[in-house]
Nucleic acid binder design. Structure first.
Length: 293
DNA sequence: GCGTCCAGGTCTACC
DNA sequence: GGTAGACCTGGACGC
């Protein structure tokens, strides 16, 4: 099956795919040579391969095996944020020499998973470790519990599949260390209905949502700020060791990157988290090299 | 080959 | 409300 989507004006697939590290974690992968974003999604309990390419202003999605086009389109729209309105952010950025490039480049849409659940689990696996360890932990989780697609790649595990395993499994086999009990609790609460993470996409009160994110086990300020971005709230900076070191590199005269960021992006108000992220990742969009290689 | 450090932090106990 | 210390893993680094 092949489906076609009409992206909004100015949309750029490459800038969206490589907007942050998610493209580097399965079930996403990005092929720089063919400029194709690959992804395994689950539709009707089965794993399907997607290959997403930009062709003459449209998005072409090859789906294997066939799946209902409407369901594929709706998952692609969520992942690529096709329905997000960034016009008021770009209006602010146009006056800022540091970030005015973003509109021209089509940057600003942050890639996300088709489910909030997947984003939460992955964000938890980025905490207190190197990016290479995040990649290893997510890879093992997907390999061991995800359903296989025709390509041999696997879908992200469902909450039910994850809930069926215990803490030992996440310690000894996925090797997530002290994060294991958090994974079990989030998976079981989501599978049982005690948590309803997918409904959080409809929450428009960013502060209330931020508070709820912080209540999740293993999710602290860094992870909550960044998850909120994936839910459409950009008012928090989500500073981590990578951001701080990049801020120091870009602005070597600063001694306190936290204060600098607080001051420098304040004018963006509810968009300040996005403004900072784009400022820090500008070089990712200026080169075809993989920034995470 | 071995020890140390720290990376896209969080939580608890204690002041 | 502020802070020290514990917590898994694996890659980088120095010796």
């Amino acid at each position: 099956l092949q489906v076609t989507l009409r992206p909004p004006p100015g949309f750029d697939l490459i800038a969206t795919a490589r907007s942050h590290g998610w493209y580097d974690l399965p079930p996403f992968s990005f092929d720089g040579d063919s400029q194709t974003l690959h992804r395994v999604i689950t539709v009707g309990g089965r794993a399907h391969d997607l290959a997403i390419r930009a062709v003459r202003g449209a998005l072409r999605v090859k789906v294997t095996p066939d799946a209902p086009a409407g369901e594929v389109k709706s998952q692609v729209r969520v992942m690529l944020r096709l329905d997000e309105d960034l016009s008021s952010f770009y209006a602010l950025a146009d006056d800022d020499p540091k970030i005015a490039w973003a509109r021209r480049r089509g940057a600003g849409r942050l890639l996300r998973a088709p489910t909030v659940y997947e984003d939460v689990i992955k964000m938890l696996l980025t905490t207190n470790c190197s990016w290479s360890l995040t990649r290893v932990m997510v890879g093992r989780l997907v390999d061991k519990l995800g359903d296989a697609a025709p390509s041999g790649g696997r879908a992200f595990p469902t909450p039910e599949a994850m809930a069926a395993r215990d803490e030992r499994f996440y310690r000894d086999e996925v090797r997530t260390g002290y994060r294991a009990p958090h994974l079990v609790r989030i998976a079981r609460d989501q599978a049982s209905g005690k948590l309803a993470l997918e409904s959080w996409r409809d929450e428009r009160d960013a502060e209330a949502l931020h508070d709820r994110l912080l209540e999740l086990p293993g999710i602290g300020p860094y992870a909550a700020d960044n998850l909120l971005r994936l839910l459409g709230g950009y008012g928090y900076l989500g500073l981590d060791s990578w951001c701080r070191s990049k801020l120091k590199r870009l602005y070597p005269r600063t001694r306190d990157p936290d204060r600098l960021a607080e001051r420098m992006y304040r004018r963006y108000g509810v968009w300040r988290g996005l403004a900072m992220w784009l400022d820090l990742t500008r070089d990712w969009h200026e080169s075809t090299d993989d920034p995470l290689a």
